[in-house]
């Protein structure tokens, strides 16, 4: 971190206090209550709550479903955020050029943001319907070419495609804005040194885009985790055969559809630890590579 201009003992705390209070009340306090449940056997309506120590953790960590769900979650986070960032980066690089289509594209690529995630799932389930959707003709030629309802790989592809559509606006805006802020002179200077467009992408554009890429990576990884809930809820319900029962959805359905508050809370605590590790990793290893000077 840099900057560090002003010195004051109390002022920064007063400035951060409003946000910290809101976060405390509506993020950390609810989580703390969940922590409590993780060490108890909790009746849903609060009738009785028995302290069981680490029993809940033993049970969760001992169940195969939890581990396969956790593994699937990690894989999903990597692939979902990777595909959406890559897609948005390619679109942003294309839209950064002064083409006739660019103004239209810059506008349209933000439209998906206006659609509520519940509707997005419903729409894509239809479009990718194996019998009626856009891939149905291919299925008639090669039966079984595309079936996200029974083929787990296809199910994940369906989720990734939907996630990309959903994630384009934010990632695209941030990356495009970053690209547009790169001064033309740098391009010209690069071109005069004889480096072609591909070289300039690696030597000039991407290094200068690191602050934006960093923001986008942190937020997309986070979004792929929290956003998976809405997609799975409307598209796969965790199927086929539990293959897309990612942790966020599993916690929700265990806890709030099936009233196993303790089991859900235990998994929340573990997920929280996982999230802390990922965030820590991003800040320790990725932020070093960010170039704030222009």
């Amino acid at each position: 971190m840099k900057q560090e201009i002003f010195r004051s003992r109390w002022l920064p705390w007063w400035l951060s206090a409003p946000q910290l209070i809101v976060l405390f009340l509506f993020f950390y306090l609810p989580i703390a209550l969940a922590f409590f449940w993780a060490f108890h056997l909790e009746q849903p309506f609060g009738g009785r709550s028995e302290f069981v120590g680490l029993e809940n953790f033993r049970r969760v960590l001992g169940s195969g479903e939890f581990w396969s769900s956790a593994g699937a979650t990690l894989l999903y986070m990597v692939l979902a955020s990777g595909t959406s960032i890559l897609t948005a980066l390619i679109l942003a690089l294309a839209a950064d050029r002064a083409l006739k289509l660019s103004p239209l594209a810059r506008n349209v690529f933000i439209w998906p943001k206006a659609v509520a995630s519940a509707s997005i799932g419903v729409i894509f389930v239809f479009i990718l319907n194996p019998f009626l959707g856009i891939l149905a003709p291919l299925n008639e030629i090669w039966p079984g070419f595309w079936n996200p309802r029974t083929n787990v790989t296809h199910t994940y592809i369906m989720l990734f495609v939907t996630n990309v559509w959903n994630a384009i606006p934010f990632t695209f805006i941030i990356l495009l804005a970053g690209l547009q802020a790169i001064p033309q002179e740098l391009h010209k200077a690069g071109a005069m040194d004889g480096s072609g467009p591909w070289r300039r992408l690696w030597d000039i554009q991407l290094p200068l885009l690191t602050p934006q890429l960093f923001v986008v990576i942190v937020l997309e990884v986070a979004d792929s985790l929290s956003g998976s809930f809405g997609l799975i809820d409307t598209m796969t319900n965790g199927g086929p055969g539990g293959a897309t029962n990612l942790l966020v959805y599993k916690i929700y359905s265990d806890g709030f559809k099936a009233y196993d508050l303790s089991g859900a809370a235990t998994q929340t605590v573990i997920l929280m630890a996982l999230v802390a590790c990922i965030t820590g990793f991003q800040y320790v290893f990725l932020e070093r590579k960010v170039n704030y000077d222009r």
Binding site: F26, L29, P30, A222, L225, F229, Y252, L261, T279
Partner: peptide, 19 residues
């Protein structure tokens, strides 16, 4: 602040309601 980005409110719906 950053840690709060990762977990959706859906996972805390009951306790957030209580608060």
């Amino acid at each position: 602040v950053v840690a709060s980005i990762m977990l959706p409110l859906e996972l805390m719906i009951i306790t957030a309601y209580q608060v």
